[in-house]
Amino acid sequence: MKSLIHTIKTAIFSILFLSLSISNAQIIYEDQLETIYLNKNAEEVVYTNSFSNFNNDLIATNKINFKSQIQKANQNNDRLLFLSERSNLQILTVTYLRTIRRGANQSNNPESFKAFINNKLPELINQFKKDNNLEELYIISRKNTFNGKIDALPSVL
C-alpha cells in the first residue's frame, strides 16, 4: 500500500515537473520566434514601403553623394520602413545607404547588384521585382563609388 501511494506521488510530481518545464521552455523561446502570418493571398499587401520612395528620390537626384547623404541620415537618425501583412522591416537609412554603396562598388553589372541587395534584404525581394528600379539605382550609385570612378578613367593601354 505504501509503495502504491509512493508511486502515485512520484507520478504526480513527475507530471507537474514536466508540465512546468514545458511551459518554461515555451516562455523562453517565445521571444525568439517571429510572427508568422497565415494567409491564402498569393499577393502581398503592402501598407508602407519607404524603400521604394527613397530609391526613387535617389534616382531623381541623378547624382548620389554617399558621404553627405550618410552624414545627413546619421544626424537625423532616419529609418526606412516596410510594412505588409507578411513582414515588417525597419532599418536605419544609414545602413541602407551603406548597403547600396557597398553593392554598387562590389558589383560589375546590374544583375549582380540586384543579387547583392536581395541577399542583404530578402524581405524586399518581391517589392524590388515590382518596382524594377534597382537597375537605375545601380547605374547612378556606381558612378559615385570608388570602383565606378576607376572604371570611368580613360584606358591607357
Score class of each variant (00 low, 15 high):
3 S>I: 10
4 L>F: 01
4 L>V: 05
5 I>K: 13
8 I>P: 01
8 I>V: 10
10 T>R: 09
11 A>L: 06
12 I>S: 03
13 F>Q: 01
13 F>A: 01
14 S>K: 12
14 S>A: 14
15 I>E: 05
16 L>C: 14
16 L>D: 07
19 S>F: 06
20 L>H: 01
20 L>T: 05
21 S>G: 05
23 S>Q: 13
23 S>C: 11
23 S>K: 09
24 N>L: 08
24 N>I: 08
25 A>I: 07
26 Q>E: 15
26 Q>P: 01
27 I>V: 10
28 I>E: 00
29 Y>V: 06
30 E>N: 14
31 D>C: 07
34 E>P: 07
35 T>K: 10
36 I>D: 01
39 N>E: 03
40 K>S: 04
40 K>I: 09
41 N>G: 12
43 E>G: 12
43 E>M: 13
44 E>S: 00
44 E>I: 04
46 V>S: 02
48 T>N: 07
49 N>L: 04
49 N>R: 02
50 S>D: 07
53 N>E: 14
54 F>Y: 07
55 N>W: 07
56 N>W: 03
57 D>Q: 02
57 D>V: 05
58 L>D: 03
59 I>D: 02
61 T>H: 02
62 N>K: 13
63 K>M: 13
63 K>N: 12
63 K>Y: 13
63 K>H: 13
63 K>E: 14
64 I>L: 04
65 N>A: 07
65 N>R: 01
66 F>M: 09
66 F>D: 12
67 K>N: 13
68 S>C: 00
72 K>N: 12
72 K>Q: 14
72 K>V: 03
73 A>Y: 02
74 N>M: 11
76 N>Y: 11
76 N>T: 14
76 N>E: 15
78 D>T: 04
79 R>C: 04
80 L>W: 00
81 L>T: 15
85 E>W: 01
86 R>Q: 08
91 I>E: 03
91 I>T: 02
91 I>V: 14
91 I>F: 08
92 L>R: 00
92 L>I: 00
94 V>R: 01
95 T>A: 04
96 Y>T: 05
97 L>T: 05
97 L>G: 05
98 R>A: 01
99 T>K: 14
100 I>R: 00
103 G>S: 08
104 A>I: 00
105 N>L: 09
105 N>S: 09
105 N>H: 09
106 Q>L: 08
107 S>L: 03
108 N>L: 14
109 N>A: 12
114 K>T: 11
116 F>Q: 06
118 N>M: 15
119 N>V: 05
120 K>I: 13
121 L>S: 03
122 P>V: 06
123 E>Y: 04
123 E>K: 08
124 L>D: 01
125 I>M: 04
125 I>W: 04
125 I>R: 09
127 Q>R: 13
128 F>Q: 03
128 F>A: 05
131 D>Y: 05
131 D>Q: 12
133 N>R: 11
133 N>T: 09
135 E>R: 10
135 E>S: 12
135 E>V: 12
135 E>M: 06
136 E>G: 00
136 E>N: 02
138 Y>N: 02
141 S>V: 06
141 S>Q: 01
141 S>L: 01
142 R>L: 08
143 K>C: 06
143 K>Q: 10
144 N>T: 14
145 T>F: 01
145 T>Y: 05
146 F>I: 13
146 F>Q: 14
147 N>F: 11
149 K>M: 15
151 D>F: 12
152 A>V: 06
154 P>W: 02
154 P>R: 03
154 P>E: 07
155 S>F: 14
155 S>C: 10
156 V>Y: 08
157 L>H: 15
157 L>C: 15
157 L>N: 15
